[in-house]
Write a protein that binds this DNA or RNA. Sequence first.
DNA 1: CCGGTTTCTGACTACAAAATCAGGAAAGCT
DNA 2: AGCTTTCCTGATTTTGTAGTCAGAAACCGG
Lengths: 220, 220
Amino acid sequence: MADSADWPITPKGEATAARIRDVALDQFSRLGFERVTMGGIAKAAKVSQPALHYHFQDKAQLWRASMLALAAVIAEEERLMNAARDLPALTQLRMAMRMFLQISWNHPALGRIVALEGMAGGERLEWLNRHLIGPRNRRLVKLAAQAIADGDLRPFPPELLIITLQTGGVGVINLAPLLRDAFGYEPDEPTARAAHEDMILEAVLGGFLTEKGRARETAR
Amino acid sequence: MADSADWPITPKGEATAARIRDVALDQFSRLGFERVTMGGIAKAAKVSQPALHYHFQDKAQLWRASMLALAAVIAEEERLMNAARDLPALTQLRMAMRMFLQISWNHPALGRIVALEGMAGGERLEWLNRHLIGPRNRRLVKLAAQAIADGDLRPFPPELLIITLQTGGVGVINLAPLLRDAFGYEPDEPTARAAHEDMILEAVLGGFLTEKGRARETAR
DNA sequence: CCGGTTTCTGACTACAAAATCAGGAAAGCT
DNA sequence: AGCTTTCCTGATTTTGTAGTCAGAAACCGG
């Protein structure tokens, strides 16, 4: 069980475990826990199916282990945000949003997982809240509340505001298959990505600004 | 097979088939195709599990049949929108958005299903595109393009605009379990719902308006 | 190159869920 | 009432997948 604190690991063992985690993260995030089979992961990772059980005791633990690959990403974001903690709340929120979009393009798994488990509820959502997204979300809500108090954001419930910003922000990324299928639009191209980032920051975040907030932004 | 054109149906048979469809729609939309079991649906609908196979030949067909329950909802929306087809594109878009929010609160299944299958891709998404959401989405994109041409909406790619409006709009609805878990916020209450509708229409749709568009809105 | 450790596989078991089928109950018709 | 059609169930088969286990292969320090 690769989870327990001390697990004798050779470079080779760690390499295949990492490969399995990567494949698992990709599949879990696109398909959700139940549509993914251990056999499918094994095949994509070019190992036998029992190899998965050698490195991870069961499917649930493999899921958690693969989610922890995202923890590093979140931690880095946290670090950068921390460095900016003396700036106005609105400025921080804008930074956070820009970072969130970049992260979401580079690691589409994050937004998809939250969408999948956030709809279903249950123990995996609880785990995510505890270990991955909970603290981050609470921090963002506080920021939004502060920006509202500063008179920079229009006074909507900060929880709704944060969820809407994020779901609106990653909608295009999560639903890339739908965009392709329905419109023949390919969102994962440099020009489309740039248009998207622009749109979210200018229009969606922009729509929440007060006059004062807009003034602060242009003074930037 | 209840699907085929002529299926001898008595009132009683139709009643249980409808009960099964309703349960199925609810479960499929909250949990996704694979987490739902025929046995679970049967139990919730108070029939034996083979009864499901009597009315619907297999699980996939039950899924499709339950989705068609949403077709009536879509058609009604279509009818109302058609009555307003001579109004300016922006006004129509605003109407559509308001209707979309109401539908999404009353039938949360729709947004969840699109999110689930839109992320995964595959044959069910293709089916949805063909039978349920495709025409509607294309119409909305055309409206957005027109509103941009009118100078009422800022010039972002209309496909991205429509997807972002919709995903941002239903984010709070879809992720209700997350809101409860993470913040203890209950979004499905009259006051919260009102705040939400306000926020989406004013801030999110509002953020996409040009000066001219804003003027048109206030002249309303 | 040898013994021990780590890593991995093939063959298997256990189980849950979809699908089938033979037949019984209920409803409708004459 | 008697016959027929429609509706539904209990019992069973089939299938797909998670998880186990004995042992082979690869690796490593001496």
